[in-house]
Write a protein that binds this DNA or RNA. Structure first.
Lengths: 201, 201
DNA sequence: TCCCCACGATAACAGCATTCTCCTAAACCG
DNA sequence: CGGTTTAGGAGAATGCTGTTATCGTGGGGA
């Protein structure tokens, strides 16, 4: 069964437009049979869900690792946003790791979010709870206002960061984020400071 | 040809999970033949693209209408965000109008954004330029900082508002946005004022 | 009247997910 | 050791969908 997952990740990493990600292909790469596949997974959907779960877990783990290196709650919040943004950027070439979302994974993520909201919520739990703790700390230290619903805020931040990384450039028609650095900085300024000028009055 | 588009919208309005939106179904509803369909459209993709274009245009028109009623640049920016947020909320029941994104349309939007970025950019132009003018005015009047790249900012705002409306609740696992009013207010506070406490220092 | 051709009806084909059928071979048990 | 059970491999069969091709007809123009 793990071999199916491995084959799945391998294929995700390479599949360009999602067209090549077929059950048959996964089965072939896994060196097992179609029969076994449907013995372990109720269908293609279940495989993708399992892959998605692992990707989210892996992302949360890597983020937690980065957070541990920061000293203050505000730095942790900043690190979360910037690093998550990096992980959500479309893979340019290099490392199509478990975290780096491929077109197939992105598309599946949307199917989940639109058509299987219960499963989607469950899958996102690791990221949401991690961010909630970061927000709790930041509220404790007064870096973010108290009294907010941190689950809701976490959902808003995650969707903002994820989809800005993935799509903002395409929507605006700007050229590629050659230096994701600049874009990440912009987004953090946006999220932390807001859009509107701070008036004296 | 218009009949195919009409049939398409009709079907979009009703199609639950995207499964029912087949070329055959559109053809049947249009009262024309498969042959004619492929005479006018190179494929299903082209039909969806045409529907998407129309949906964006219609959305931009309705927004422009609302903006005309506002007196100040900042009010226009606020109206844009809140009204666009409303339009992107998943249709609860009532009016599955041209603007209200159905699961099928949302899914297609993602396919565009991930796999056909050029087409996606082109389709979003009406919304982006509209928001750019709003931002230009707001910068002129000093309501937002000057020196920003308004195309980029517009892309960021659009993706933030659209996907927050569509997915933030699912990601956070919160219950439905019973009163989209509250959520829209939250998002505007977030966008305009930022996340981080304003310190005296 | 005759020809052309746009279009409807419908069959044919291809890709993919899913299921089913047959069969081998290893494991297990007496 | 021999018989039986069973996991699983190979691949054919089914069904749905997008796409293309075939055939025929009815109406408009020469």
């Amino acid at each position: 069964m793990q071999r199916f997952l491995d084959a799945g990740f391998e294929l995700l990493a390479r599949a360009e437009s999602g067209k090549e990600f077929t059950v048959q292909e996964v089965v072939d790469r896994s060196g097992q049979s179609l029969r076994s596949f449907y013995q372990y997974f109720a269908g293609k959907h279940e495989l993708l869900l399992a892959l998605f779960d692992e990707a989210i877990l892996s992302t949360a783990d890597r983020l937690e690792e980065q957070l541990a290196r920061q000293d203050t709650p505000l730095e942790r919040l900043h690190t979360f946003v910037v690093e998550y943004y990096r992980m959500c950027l479309p893979a340019p070439k290099g490392r199509p790791s478990k975290n780096n979302p491929t077109p197939v994974m992105a598309e599946f993520c949307h199917q989940l979010l639109t058509a299987h909201q219960t499963e989607a919520s469950r899958a996102f739990v690791p990221l949401v709870t991690l961010l909630e703790t970061v927000l709790d700390d930041a509220a404790q230290s007064g870096d973010v206002p108290k009294g907010l619903n941190h689950a809701e805020v976490a959902g808003a931040i995650l969707s903002t960061v994820m989809f800005n990384a993935a799509y903002a450039h395409t929507i605006s028609g700007s050229e590629e984020p050659a230096n994701g650095e600049h874009a990440a900085t912009q987004l953090w300024a946006f999220l932390s400071g807001g859009l509107v000028t701070r008036r004296a009055g």
